[in-house]
Amino acid sequence: MEELSIEGAWEITPQLHGDPRGLFTEWYRFDKLAAVVGHPLRLAQANLSVSSRDVVRGIHFADVPPGQAKYVTCVRGAVLDVIVDLRVGSPTFGRWQGVRLDEDERKAVYISEGLGHGFCALSDDATLTYLCSEPFNPTGEHGVHPLDPELGIEWPAGTPQLSAKDAQAPSLSEALASGLLPDYQAVKAFTAGLGAERP
């Protein structure tokens, strides 16, 4: 596992075992993740998302506490997975980093509580599966507009296709002014306590 430039986000490159019959890989290991992150990932929900080429989903985040950590991989096609630091007071606040996830290398990303997440489908029927630490909570889930010039995310899409909800999401400045964004120190304190709570 390799920590990305945004604290709380990691890229996982699994070992692939292939022969003429097919392929085997351990795409998720709770013990290896816990050793790096400092606590096990509580498995509360698993999602599957299928998107057409040029679809952009996100940038989504959840209130902390409890937040929603995610472990994401692409099982078909390819996506550019994007992590955005939305934690007010973080040294990398407002920055983003992208990781290509595809069916060839089978990489995954771990996105801790308080970070924003989105992706762009690079192929038709791009299929993501992700494990979540908390169930979906519609009253505690929020978004920032993925095309906000202040974020400056370089989406690899000719014409990004957004959902109506994502297209109406506030800009980073608007979300900041409204008090919607998580606080960096509060997020750090919350995640530090997860090791004791989740044996």
Rank of each mutant, 00 (worst) to 15 (best):
H60L: 03
A175H: 00
G158Q: 08
S123G: 05
C120E: 03
E141S: 11
W96I: 02
L33I: 14
S5D: 11
C74I: 02
K32P: 06
S112K: 06
I59D: 04
N47D: 15
R42S: 09
V50I: 13
R21L: 11
D166M: 06
H142N: 09
F24Y: 14
R57Q: 10
P146H: 02
A78Y: 05
E7S: 15
T92V: 07
V64L: 06
N47Q: 14
Y110F: 13
R29C: 15
L80D: 03
E150C: 08
V82W: 01
G143E: 02
G143D: 02
G158H: 09
D19C: 12
R21A: 12
D54E: 15
P91A: 07
Q45M: 14
L128G: 03
E7Q: 12
V99R: 03
A126Q: 09
P65W: 11
L131S: 07
R53G: 02
A196T: 02
P149A: 02
K188A: 04
R53Q: 06
H145F: 07
E103G: 01
G58V: 06
A121C: 04
P170I: 01
R21N: 15
D124R: 06
I111Q: 04
Y28T: 10
A196S: 04
Y28V: 14
R87W: 05
L180R: 01
T191Q: 00
R100K: 07
A34W: 11
L194T: 00
V55W: 08
E141G: 07
D63G: 05
P160T: 02
V56F: 12
D19T: 14
L172N: 01
L16F: 10
A46S: 13
Y28A: 13
R106L: 00
P138I: 05
F136V: 06
S112G: 15
V72I: 07
A167W: 03
E154P: 05
S163M: 10
D102H: 05
Q161E: 05
V37N: 08
A46H: 11
L162D: 02
G58F: 03
R21S: 10
F61E: 04
L162N: 02
K32H: 12
A78H: 09
I83V: 14
E141A: 15
F136H: 13
Q45R: 13
S178V: 05
V75A: 12
R21H: 15
L48C: 09
A78S: 15
A192R: 00
G89A: 05
G116Y: 06
S49I: 07
F119A: 01
A177E: 11
P156T: 09
E174C: 03
D81K: 00
L122N: 01
W10S: 11
L172G: 01
P160I: 00
V55N: 09
V187R: 07
V64T: 09
G193R: 00
G118H: 01
